[in-house]
Simulated scan of single mutants.
Amino acid sequence: MTNQKQTKLGAQNSILSAARVRRLSPEQLGISAPGQQSDQIDDSDQGEKLHSAAVDAVGDDEDGIGAAVLTSDETLHTGIPIKGEGWGTHAIELAVSKAVSNGADGISSVAVYSVDGQSGLCGRCLQALADTRDGEVTIEVLSSEGFENSFELTDLTPWVSQS
């Protein structure tokens, strides 16, 4: 057995290590802290900003999918699909997760973008919206050609009541 010196780093940190740990603030990571508002928008720009955010979320990925959700407090959150070995998160799921983790009360509108306008909506994503909705939710599907279609969540999910 070796004599290793271990140091407790903090009362709330249970990791023991002789190495120094650098703590980063949410601002240094480019994210909002829990409970902080991110990208609040007003009603006049709501649709345009929602669409732009979904398209911008894709970045340089020409075949990518991007989603943007608007919460009842008019906060905008975006997401893209994340693929892992044996797991993954869809664009809408990630956007909803970010909204919920930042303290959103409910989702009111969604825009989902894909080049062909055919990708981006599935049962998992619809369920995430149904679980976090604030009344009726409008879902707008966008393609590289522009606006494709608009749906109400209750039209796509008959099991969801309109309450």
Rank of each mutant, 00 (worst) to 15 (best):
A54C: 08
G120Y: 00
A95L: 06
D73K: 08
A68T: 06
L94K: 12
H51N: 13
H90P: 05
I82V: 15
G106C: 07
P34L: 11
S108R: 14
L50Y: 05
Q46M: 09
Y113F: 14
V55P: 08
G123A: 03
L142K: 01
A111Y: 03
D116S: 12
D45E: 14
I92V: 14
I92P: 06
I80T: 15
G79V: 06
I80E: 09
A54P: 07
T75D: 04
V96E: 09
V110M: 05
V100D: 07
G47P: 11
L94P: 11
I92L: 08
A57N: 03
G84Y: 04
A67V: 02
H90S: 13
D63Y: 10
E85V: 13
V141W: 04
E136N: 12
I139Y: 03
K83F: 13
E74W: 13
Q40Y: 02
D60V: 00
I80W: 03
A57W: 06
S38F: 09
H77K: 03
C122Q: 08
Q118P: 01
S114R: 02
V69R: 03
S109F: 06
E93D: 14
S114G: 03
Q37N: 11
S108H: 05
S143G: 08
E136W: 03
E85L: 13
S38A: 14
G66P: 00
G146N: 07
E74A: 10
R133N: 05
T138R: 09
D56A: 13
Q37P: 13
A91G: 08
I139S: 06
E93G: 15
V112Q: 04
T132Q: 15
V58F: 04
C122D: 15
L94M: 14
G135P: 09
G84D: 01
V141K: 13
Y113C: 10
A67F: 04
P34R: 15
L129Y: 04
V55R: 15
A104F: 02
G146W: 03
V115Q: 11
G106A: 09
L129C: 06
H77V: 01
A54M: 07
D73G: 11
D56M: 08
T132A: 13
G86I: 03
G123I: 01
S101R: 15
P34N: 09
V137N: 09
L121C: 07
S108Q: 12
T75E: 12
A54H: 04
L129H: 09
K49R: 15
S109M: 05
D43K: 13
R124A: 08
G88W: 01
V115M: 04
S52A: 15
